[in-house]
Structures are given as C-alpha cells and as structure tokens.
Design a protein around this nucleic acid. Structure first.
Lengths: 133, 133
DNA sequence: CCTAACGTTGACGTTAACGTAAACTTGGCA
DNA sequence: TGCCAAGTTTACGTTAACGTCAACGTTAGG
C-alpha cells in the first residue's frame, strides 16, 4: 500500500535540500532520524525524507531541533498508551496556540512592512517632485 | 505631536517584557538600541521601547538579531538618499517574500497538527470502544 | 555613616547547530 | 592492482545569544 518506497543516499538528500551531509548526520545524532544501514552506509527511506522536510520547515519557522523532534513524534504516537495519547493531544494544542501567536506576529509585521514601503515610496516621489520643479 | 513621551529604566523594561537587563544591554551592544544616558545610567524612550517590541516579535518569528536590526532600520530610513531608499524598498519586498513562505509553512503545519490531533482522538475513542465492549 | 537597591563595565561560561579537518574503509573501474 | 569518489567516525572550532559572576559607582533611607 506504500507508494514510491524509494531509498536515498545521504548525499542525494543533501543535494535535494541544499544542506550538508554533516547536518543530516547531526540530525540523526540528535535523534530526529534513524536511517537503516547497509554495513556502515546510511540508507534513507521515503519516511526519513519526509522527516527531513519537517525538520527544515521547522527551521524556517524558527523551531529548535528539539521542538521539531517533538512535532515529528506527533505523527506516529504510541497507539497503545492512552495516557501518552492524551498528553500528546495537549502538546498539539499547545503548539497550535504558539503557532497562532506566530501567525498574528506575521500578519502584524507584514502590515508594518507595507506601511514602511509606502513611506519609502512617498519619500521618493516627493524627492522627484522637488528636484524636477 | 508625540504622545506619551515617557521614559523607562532598564529594569522597568526588563520586567515588562519578561527578559533580563543583560539581554537589553546585549541588544544595545549589537546596535539595536541606543538609549540616552543620565551619567552612567541608561534611559529608554518610548521609541526605544517600541524597538524592543520589534526585537521580541522578531525573536518569536525566528529572526536573528541582525535581521531584526535590519527591520528596525526600515522604519526610519535616510530620507535624503534616494539610492538607499530604493535598495531599502527592495529589502522590504524581499523580507515580505520570506514572510509569505513562513506563512505558508505555518498554515501547512497547522493543518497537519489538526490531522495529527484527529488521529490521536480516533485512536483514543477506538481504545475506549474496545475496552468497554 | 552604613547598607540596600539599582546601576555600570568587563570577562568568562554555556548551549545549539552545525563547519572543518583528519584518518579510515569500501565499492567500482581503467 | 591501484586509485578515486563517496561514505564513515572522532574530535576540535565557530557563531549567536545570552547567563553568570566579580568588582565597582551612586543614591535614598534609617
């Protein structure tokens, strides 16, 4: 049922996402990735690749690796432990609240950038009028 | 025309925003704040306080202090230099593009968190049904 | 006059997230 | 057979953003 069950080398992923192999190994060292091995060599599954995508998106949003690790673990929880499931739901809600704050911050900053640009444009046209008159 | 032109001590601001005085001095060291002095003692204006707000919002969005510094400088550009005004407009647009990417990432992560929570809730109710039957 | 609270300037310590370099193994091929 | 490219481990270096002293000035109160 799993589609496209390809596998990847470390340098393939590194190139695809524009990061270094060192970074990828570092993520493993921090427990965010657990690739299979062929002898020494790491072999990354499609699922590992998805985790990498989550990590990088987390970085773009300013999350720490530790936070991204939490989020990744929200995707395949321990289905047999209702206690953990409940605390996980709480963590998800908490994280969503945090994201909502970020969303607000983003909108505000966007708006302010718009105003800043408008002021700049105004200043420019004013200068032109003054210098051409 | 300036309303509420109050001034603040470093510890006032520290307490208001829940940060340390060390952090505030650090921001000054990095050129993001330039408070007046009364002898040795720093005196922060309402404008300084606004800058602090911008800094902290930047942090919530994952910006570096250097980036926040850039953004702060977008608010009071050199009105006499049309060259700088133009490059500033470019920087603003660039920053706005970046924010749009972040916005996309945020929405995606929100959606995925929703799904994750739904799966957790499903697993919970399924467990209840199984254990109570 | 003493000290308590608040401020200051160094200076060194710490954590996260890799970068960089050395030294080694290993599969493929001219 | 010999070597190169790609992989590995180990270890030390680096930058950002502060934390944490230490040692000192100053000002208001008892």
């Amino acid at each position: 049922m799993t589609s496209k069950s390809r596998s990847f080398s470390i340098s393939q992923l590194a190139e695809e996402f524009g990061i270094t192999t060192r970074a990828i190994r570092f993520y493993e060292e921090k427990g965010l990735l657990q690739p299979k091995r062929n002898g020494q060599t790491r072999i990354y599954s499609a699922a590992d690749r998805v985790k990498l995508i989550l990590i990088l998106r987390g970085k773009r949003l300013g999350l720490s690796l530790e936070e991204s690790k939490d989020i990744i673990e929200m995707y395949h929880p321990d289905q047999d432990n209702s206690q953990q499931l409940q605390t996980l739901i709480d963590k998800i809600r908490e994280k969503r609240e945090h994201l909502k704050t970020q969303l607000e911050d983003l909108r505000t900053m966007m708006r302010e950038l718009d105003e800043a640009e408008a002021r700049c444009a105004d200043a420019l046209t004013t200068m032109k009028i003054v210098t051409t008159s």
